[in-house]
Design a protein around this nucleic acid. Structure first.
Lengths: 336, 336
DNA sequence: TATCTTGTTGCAACCGATTTCTTTCCTCAT
DNA sequence: ATGAGGAAAGAAATCGGTTGCAACAAGATA
């Protein structure tokens, strides 16, 4: 590989001058700059960013730690992150944790070793696996899920609001009262807030949430499936399900279908997060659609501000409202 | 940050010894090793991989260059890549080109500067934007799309086969003869092969493919939409559409729906690539489903072999057969 | 003419690891 | 007793850039 020394020798100058010429720093005469540029071109010089990173203590890399890139919500988020980051000359390393705190902790440690300039984290834990981060002072922005008692910026969706509106819709428009919720784990802020919104809507309608209607598990398709089977096989006759997120909804519908329960005729269903592309094709799921792409770009912008060392004293918390999209799964008529 | 020098000083040894102790190299007494380990633990030492990379000339990083992580096909591929890579201690940098060869070329150059150990590329060009790669000898494996006259390994789907079977199905099972194809650009191997498979099936059935049934454009939703509108508004009465890929299919269906043309009743449709998660929910699209995840893992394995410098003289080409999934969009009854 | 700027350029240190080459010291065979 | 052999550990070079500082030349000012 041709290095800066090769270019220097060929151009008859020192490596320092080459560095300055190429970076556009002042202190190099125009004539020299042109000559260096020409030689660099001629030798097809391509600077080694590893060496540069070592010296500058900046890698122009950020990490995005999420549970599963395969989930359309995270895919869109990731796309937003990549777009905004690369717009600013940063690259993104993606890490899938599969909702496993141990994997999360391992990735965090690995990313620190790799000297990423900052991390975007949708934590799958209560934040304990992030403890080694607080001891270092690397910039972090939490996305989608906040972690209690952390001092990091975050950009999240308004889960309480979305859950409240969705549940209220089931109650007021469709007259449902026996509504179950299949939620992710309560260590996650999204789960807690969604349960809260659900509970509030129920209580406001004079319905006491029953314990056997509340399923707490994980944000996985299989949990949605298992919970729904149990609900439909042994539970009281439920009229509607509030699915904690899109993959839980898929599991729920699969279970219902297997048991011959029709959605929405026999069982209404609402959920969080949409299936972008496909939803234009099959406008079926009534959902609280979060602005995933925007969450990604905003989070990157906030992270870059921290990386640049801009003096922002207070912790910032951006809360984005989900868009409530009414389609058929709740019992409303399809509008297309 | 604590460095190897801090650990060395504290443990009363040289940095060289610390390095050896931590890496498990021989030449360090057990007593010393234990002491170093203890000190490293105590100081919360976390090695700087940038420094290591500079010296070892190996970054343990690969790049995945694709057109759009938002497309479920690529998402699944990417997941396979990330899983397999991280299993071997490699991290993955994702690059979205949006089918723009200039962006692709820029990313390739950037990744070389970052000294990635290898690249996985689903090129959106005829390969000319990859020319600077052939001059360097960095390992490359092409995924999904092959580039003519390159000497790189590749793992791709059997597009000709998939297109042939799909088209044949329309002809033989559903008696269609007026079948249009909405294809990606012919610089891409996938497009060429799909057009070939389509043509072969038609010819075998004694149908001469008509030029106004063949739309060559891009793998984008909007192109699928525009082409279908044109086809339905001005063209001869077409009976079926073969969509070049999943997003084209979405556009096509959207256009058909807008014009009041029912799929599959008025217009049959088959396509390449599936919508994983969602297809269990809405088993609608008849498609040639490629093993995207496997493509990803296989590609990484082949790339790692090259990175390890294993002496494989010949170029390897892995061709994976798509699975033909018959559902409703072609006119068959849903089986679920 | 002497001094002061100002602009170019090079020298050399540095970033934090790894690795080659030595040195030192101990053990064991002759 | 002596030399060979081997293990343990350190010194120093190295990877390829960046940058503070010094050197120097040329032009400006007194």
């Amino acid at each position: 590989m041709t290095t800066i020394y090769d270019v220097a020798k060929r151009a008859g100058v020192s490596p320092a001058t080459v560095s300055r010429a190429l970076s556009g720093a002042r202190g190099v005469s125009e004539a020299t700059r042109q000559r260096v540029l020409a030689v660099a071109q001629e030798l097809q010089y391509s600077p080694n960013y590893i060496a540069r990173s070592l010296k500058k203590r900046q890698t122009n890399t950020i990490a995005l730690i999420i549970s599963d890139i395969t989930n359309p919500f995270f895919t869109t988020l990731a796309r937003g992150v990549e777009d905004k980051a690369s717009e600013h000359g940063f690259n993104t390393i993606f890490c899938n944790t599969d909702e496993d705190p141990r994997v999360e902790a391992a990735y965090v440690e690995l990313m620190l070793r790799r000297q990423v300039d900052g991390l975007l984290i949708s934590s799958c834990s209560d934040g304990r696996s992030l403890s080694l981060l607080s001891r270092r002072d690397v910039p972090v922005v939490l996305v989608d899920r906040k972690v209690k008692s952390s001092s990091w910026d975050c950009v999240v969706g308004d889960s309480e609001y979305g859950a409240y509106v969705l549940t209220k819709h089931l109650i007021e428009v469709h007259g449902k009262r026996k509504i179950a919720i299949i939620s992710g784990p309560l260590v996650l802020s999204t789960s807690r807030e969604r349960v809260e919104g659900y509970t509030r809507a129920l209580k406001e309608a004079g319905v006491t949430p029953r314990e056997e209607w509340i399923f707490i598990g994980t944000y996985k398709e299989d949990f949605g499936y298992q919970a729904t089977r149990r609900l439909l096989e042994y539970g009281p006759s439920v009229e509607a399900i509030f699915a904690g997120n899109n993959v839980i909804a898929v599991g729920a519908i699969r279970a219902a279908r297997e048991l011959g329960v029709r959605v929405p005729e026999d069982l209404a269903l609402v959920t969080f997060d949409d299936f972008d592309l496909v939803s234009t094709l099959f406008p079926f799921l009534t959902a609280a659609k979060q602005p995933a792409y925007t969450m990604g770009t905003l989070a990157v912008e906030m992270l870059l501000e921290r990386i640049r060392g801009e003096k922002i004293r207070e912790r910032r918390e951006v809360v984005l409202r989900p868009e409530i999209i009414i389609r058929r799964s709740c019992g409303c008529h399809a509008d297309s």
